[in-house]
């Protein structure tokens, strides 16, 4: 059963076209990721799906309810965690949770089993005010509050931005367990390493979806040979790589460069040799499997060239 169906949604703010006709659907119990950089339209799409913003055109249904006509029904059944911490800073952990439970006409006791896994971690600090919590704890509280009314769909807008790596990992573990309980999760993130934890992802760039597939499907569909290059003088190497005729694309990737090659038959030795000819020695070139970030870079480059 489809939990969310988004069809040809567009949104414009003045002269900025935030969404240029995006479509996707997610079925019940799926974890669907929106992957893209800041300003690519992720938050606008979230706000449209959670009935906070009206799309200029296109349709969205959540659990079979239309966001225009049945927004009241939708608000009863979705949980939303905005990108920015948006609980009451003056209220304590406990008070925030009780408050949101009451707004949804339920009680903490009634749905405690659902949030237990998450809430039990912050329960020792339940008398502490939300403003005094650490980033990771704030996020757990926000997730608990978004879950307290047992939503059937959970929207998480960049839940792990600004959170330390350990807490991030923990957080994704919790999402996995929620998914098992049949909750559909729509999550956005700018971190490509988190993308592979989703069932399916959409790569979003400047208001359009470049690709929707499983993480494995996306990386395998990329019919390019990719290599990593590492050397002493990274920036000149990047410039030189871009000039090589056999190289299609070169971009920085952490402490190394990734290149895609025009021809599948090109070997790492060929690259080392050509670079050696123009004076770059001591290079470490390796053939690698494409990851999501490579796919994102390559697809957006291809898109901007078209």
């Amino acid at each position: 059963m489809e939990s969310i169906i988004v069809k040809d949604v567009t949104k414009r703010y003045g002269s900025v076209q935030a969404l240029r006709g995006v479509s996707f659907s997610a079925h019940k119990g799926e974890m669907f990721g929106l992957i893209g950089p800041d300003g690519s339209g992720k938050t606008s799409l979230f706000r449209i799906m959670t009935t906070l913003l009206l799309a200029d055109s296109g349709s969205v249904t959540v659990d079979g309810f239309d966001v225009r006509k049945d927004y009241k029904r939708i608000r009863e059944r979705v949980g939303y965690m905005p990108g920015r911490f948006s609980l009451y800073q003056d209220l304590s952990v406990e008070e925030n949770l009780n408050f949101f439970a009451t707004l949804f006409k339920t009680t903490v006791e009634e749905n405690y089993p659902l949030v237990k896994d998450i809430y039990s971690q912050i329960e020792p600090f339940k008398k502490r005010k939300a403003r005094d919590l650490s980033g990771g704890m704030k996020q757990k509280l926000a997730l608990s509050c978004a879950l307290i009314h047992k939503p059937s769909v959970l929207f998480l807008d960049e839940p792990t931005t600004g959170v330390d790596p350990v807490s991030r990992k923990e957080f994704w573990g919790m999402l996995g367990r929620l998914k098992e309980q049949g909750i559909t999760i729509i999550v956005s993130t700018p971190y490509m390493d988190e993308a592979k934890l989703c069932d399916r992802i959409a790569l979003i760039n400047e208001g359009t979806f470049m690709k929707i597939d499983t993480p494995a499907g996306i990386t395998s569909s990329l019919e390019k040979k990719i290599m990593s290059v590492k050397g002493d003088d990274m920036y000149p190497i990047l410039k030189a790589l871009r000039e090589l005729p056999i190289v299609d694309m070169a971009f920085g990737f952490g402490d190394m460069h990734h290149i895609t090659l025009r021809d599948f038959s090109t070997t790492t030795d060929a690259v080392v040799k050509m670079m050696g000819n123009i004076g770059f020695t001591n290079l470490e070139v390796r053939e690698i499997d494409a990851n999501i970030e490579d796919c994102y870079m390559i697809l957006s480059k291809m898109k901007s060239e078209n």
């Binding site: 906070l52 009241k72 608000r75 905005p82 948006s86 609980l87 707004l103 949804f104």
Partner: peptide
């Protein structure tokens, strides 16, 4: 930003 959270409630 708390209004966002309020607005998605019924």
């Amino acid at each position: 930003g708390t209004i966002e959270q309020i607005n998605v409630t019924p």
